[in-house]
């Protein structure tokens, strides 16, 4: 029964992916892309990888979808038409097709030859969970065993935001009055009812990362989702200048993560080694700082502005 479900899921994914790249209407392509994200989340859940399922749904389908829709709204009618009807030259299309097929085949070979051999990194990590201060293998790998990677990822998120804001300044798009004004009583009620619940869920997901699926990235994306809800409901507005507190929150994750690694060198003798007795609170502080920075970065990517202020309504 579940095999049938999996087969249907895989075929739907392939079909949607094909639709996503062949459809000429940009808006449809975006909607299909969001649906692919949701189904990919389902696929990860079926593969018993709830962390990836959460990340895919929150970031891949949710926030990326919102960013794409925001970009679509910034295009004028001519640009929207041009996006869908621009065709790459035939050699380029063949090259892209053959390249994708080759990459897919290489992935197939690489993944089928993985047999999780004993003594590999996965087993080593699972055997050392006690030392990581968290019962959750994924969080242990992200924040402890491979913390360099996570630290660099935070740098990437920050750089992406700076780059996006620099490009965005060149765009002429200004939010139109009717995009921002909310003249239906339902939207404020929806925001009032849902925003606290989504915020709570984000905070919970970050905390849950220490013992069950969740963590800074999934929680941060959910917090950013609550922010998007507040922006769309007119409770938060983008402003063109950055307040000090905004800058502080943006770099908080990177700074706390680096500081925790550096300050403990005299005690532990190595960068990013944590004392065994205090590892749980240290992990929690790092997780929450990372999540706050991720959430604010993603939210500013959505508003495309340098800062935020509270709305009147």
């Amino acid at each position: 029964m579940m095999a049938l479900f999996d087969v249907v899921l895989v075929f739907t994914l392939v079909l949607l992916a094909w639709r996503c790249v062949t459809v000429t209407d940009v808006f449809r392509a975006i909607v299909v892309f969001i649906v692919i994200g949701l189904l990919l989340g389902l696929a990860w859940a079926r593969l018993e990888a709830p962390d990836l399922a959460l990340a895919e749904t929150a970031i891949g389908a949710g926030l990326l979808g919102v960013l794409l829709l925001g970009t679509w709204r910034a295009l004028d009618a001519g640009e929207r038409h041009a996006c869908g009807h621009h065709r790459a030259p035939v050699p380029a299309r063949w090259l892209a097709g053959i390249g994708s097929a080759g990459f897919g085949l290489a992935m197939l070979v690489a993944l089928t030859s993985l047999d999780g051999h004993p003594g590999g990194a996965g087993e080593l990590a699972l055997n050392n969970l006690d030392a990581a201060g968290t019962e959750q293998p994924v969080t242990a790998v992200l924040l402890n065993f491979r913390s360099y990677d996570t630290l660099l990822e935070m740098g990437v998120v920050l750089m992406a935001l700076i780059g996006a804001l620099l490009c965005r300044a060149a765009l002429t798009y200004q939010p139109r009055a009717e995009d921002v004004t909310v003249d239906t009583p339902l939207v404020p009620v929806l925001v009032t009812a849902f925003a606290p619940a989504v915020l709570l869920m984000g905070v919970y997901l970050v905390w849950a990362g220490t013992h069950s699926p969740g963590g800074a990235f999934q929680g941060g994306a959910t917090l950013a989702g609550a922010g998007v809800l507040l922006v769309l409901g007119g409770r938060l507005h983008g402003v063109p200048h950055t307040a000090l507190i905004t800058r502080a929150l943006l770099i908080l994750g990177t700074v706390v993560f680096t500081a925790a690694g550096l300050l403990l060198i005299p005690l532990e003798g190595a960068f990013m080694a944590y004392p065994a007795d205090f590892i749980y609170p240290i992990m929690l502080v790092i997780e929450y700082s990372l999540a706050l920075s991720i959430a604010l970065s993603l939210l500013l990517l959505f508003t495309g502005t340098h800062g935020l202020r509270r709305g009147e309504s």
Binding site: T184, L186, L190, A193
Partner: peptide, 13 residues
């Protein structure tokens, strides 16, 4: 309940 509220508001919009 969350799904019903969200879909009603989305439909209205």
């Amino acid at each position: 309940m969350v799904a019903v509220i969200a879909s009603s508001v989305a439909c209205h919009l």
